[in-house]
């Protein structure tokens, strides 16, 4: 069997699993978005809508985290503007679906929204990448932080997408099956990039840019590619976010969100794909899991424990939970 056929087969298996999973989890509903709400007060699926929402958010955060790992972890470009790319994706996708395709079937909305979001975000990533290539380290961080704030302020001032009121009534069609499928695909794509020629070049640039240049790698070219791929994926994550929340506000995409994604990378281990996934898992699940603590203590110590956990992880394992290691199914060999 040729390599292409294998990939197609793998994809079909994943898709089938995702569809079945979604059916079982959501209680055999065919209308996405209206999943649980046909009978008020009761849900027919296997898991409660609350956990379902948390899992969708988890998948979105995993996409964000692994796409940032490509820039921060593998290429060594310290960027602080991931929330900006996510915002572009979210607002682009929401606008495309809301203004252009309000009545299209949901899978067309999904594909068109996600592709438009990724494409536009990637385009912006291209311009930011090319214009800030001479910068390194903290300086690049500051520039990307600035760009992401500019994007947020621009969105805040566009009245058509709600401005300060927020963008409401966005069609909600994201389901766990589709988002899980795309998350797995994203992880596999990043794994293959990392293990391929491009990924090796990225790692070389991270270790020593001049040496990489001497070996015939064009650092500018590789860096722009990393920027475009990463922002494309962050844009798609934004699109899924928009269509699972149904409401967007520019407050969400402040620099705090960028730092959250960076924290996911750092907690898991910079330079490790498994670490990025694990970090996203912990930073999404922990704050929600800690709501339980409130029942015991009576007062809301959630954010205290959450912050303390992060401090402890950093003290006990400064290299992050995974360090440079990978889980077996994500390792190079």
């Amino acid at each position: 069997m040729s390599k292409l056929n294998k990939t197609v087969l793998l994809f079909l298996i994943f898709a089938a699993v995702a569809v079945v999973l979604n059916f079982v989890l959501s209680g055999f509903s065919v209308t996405p978005g209206a999943l649980f709400y046909e009978k008020p007060g009761r849900f027919t699926g296997l898991i409660s809508p609350y956990y379902y929402s948390v899992m969708i958010l988890l998948c979105i955060n995993v996409i964000l985290s692994v796409s940032l790992a490509l820039l921060n972890g593998f290429t060594g470009l310290f960027t602080m503007g991931h929330a900006g790319f996510m915002a572009i994706g979210a607002y682009t996708s929401a606008s495309v679906v809301y203004f252009l395709l309000p009545t299209a079937p949901f899978f067309i909305q999904l594909i068109a929204g996600a592709l438009a979001a990724g494409a536009f975000s990637g385009l912006v990533g291209f311009f930011i990448g090319t214009s800030s290539l001479r910068l390194n380290g903290d300086y690049l961080g500051m520039v990307t932080l600035g760009f992401s704030e500019i994007i947020r302020i621009i969105l805040l001032n566009i009245d058509a997408v709600g401005g300060a009121r927020g963008f409401s009534d966005i069609p909600v069609y994201m389901n766990l099956g589709s988002v899980l499928l795309i998350t797995v695909i994203t992880i596999m794509v990043i794994k293959r990039i990392r293990d391929g020629r491009l990924g090796r070049a990225m790692l070389a640039i991270k270790e020593n840019e001049m040496a990489a240049n001497m070996m015939g790698i064009n650092p500018l070219n590789i860096k722009v590619k990393a920027f475009v791929i990463s922002s494309f994926m962050a844009g798609m994550a934004g699109s899924f976010f928009a269509h699972s929340e149904g409401y967007l506000s520019t407050q969400t995409f402040s620099f705090a969100k960028s730092f959250e994604v960076i924290a996911m990378n750092v907690v898991g281990g910079l330079g490790s794909l498994s670490g990025a996934i694990m970090g996203a898992g912990i930073l999404t699940v922990l704050p929600e899991a800690l709501r339980k603590v409130q029942d015991i203590t009576g007062v809301d110590l959630r954010m205290v424990i959450y912050a303390l956990t992060m401090v402890l992880i950093m003290i006990l394992r400064p290299q992050g939970l995974m360090g440079n290691k990978e889980w077996k199914w994500l390792s190079s060999k």
Binding site: P49, S249, Q251, R291, D300, R302
Partner: peptide, 22 residues
């Protein structure tokens, strides 16, 4: 049952989801 949302819209949505469903 009082839940904090840290001033974030997506957390507000999640906490209402939890209040109602859980």
């Amino acid at each position: 049952k009082a839940y904090d949302n840290q001033g974030k819209p997506e957390e507000a949505r999640l906490s209402v989801e939890k209040l109602i469903n859980a």
